[in-house]
Amino acid sequence: MNETIGNQRVRVILVEDDFDLRQGLTDFLRLNGFSVTPVANGAEFSLSVTTDVFDVAIVDINLPDTNGYEITRSLAERTHMGVIIVTARTLRDDKIRGYAEGANLYLTKPVDGDELVFAIKNLSDRIKRVTTTEQLPNQSHSKWRVDCASQRLISPEGTEIRLSGREAKLILCLAEASGRIVSRADLSRAMGYRELSPETRSLDAVVRRLRSKAREAGLELPIHVVHAAGFQFSVGIEVS
Rank of each mutant, 00 (worst) to 15 (best):
R78T: 11
R78A: 11
T79N: 10
T79L: 11
T79W: 13
M81E: 00
M81H: 00
M81Q: 01
M81S: 01
G82S: 01
V83F: 01
V83C: 03
V83L: 03
I84E: 00
V86W: 00
V86H: 00
A88S: 06
R89H: 12
R92W: 14
D94V: 06
D94N: 06
K95M: 11
K95R: 11
K95L: 10
I96P: 07
I96N: 10
I96E: 10
R97G: 03
G98Y: 00
G98A: 02
Y99Q: 07
A100V: 15
A100P: 14
A103E: 06
N104A: 02
N104H: 02
L107C: 00
T108S: 08
V111A: 02
D112L: 04
D112R: 02
D114L: 09
D114E: 09
E115R: 02
L116I: 06
L116E: 05
L116V: 07
L116Q: 05
V117H: 06
F118T: 12
F118V: 12
F118A: 14
A119D: 06
I120L: 02
I120C: 01
K121N: 07
S124K: 00
S124I: 00
D125M: 08
R126M: 07
I127V: 05
I127F: 04
K128M: 11
T131L: 08
T133H: 12
Q135E: 15
Q135M: 11
L136H: 11
P137G: 14
P137Q: 11
N138L: 15
S140V: 14
H141L: 09
S142M: 08
S142K: 08
W144M: 03
R145A: 13
V146T: 02
D147G: 13
D147N: 15
D147T: 12
A149G: 09
A149T: 10
S150A: 13
S150E: 13
S150R: 14
Q151T: 13
Q151E: 12
Q151H: 12
Q151Y: 10
Q151P: 10
I154E: 05
I154C: 08
S155K: 09
E157C: 08
E160R: 04
E160K: 06
I161C: 04
R162D: 07
R162M: 08
L163F: 07
L163Q: 05
L163T: 06
L163P: 03
L163E: 07
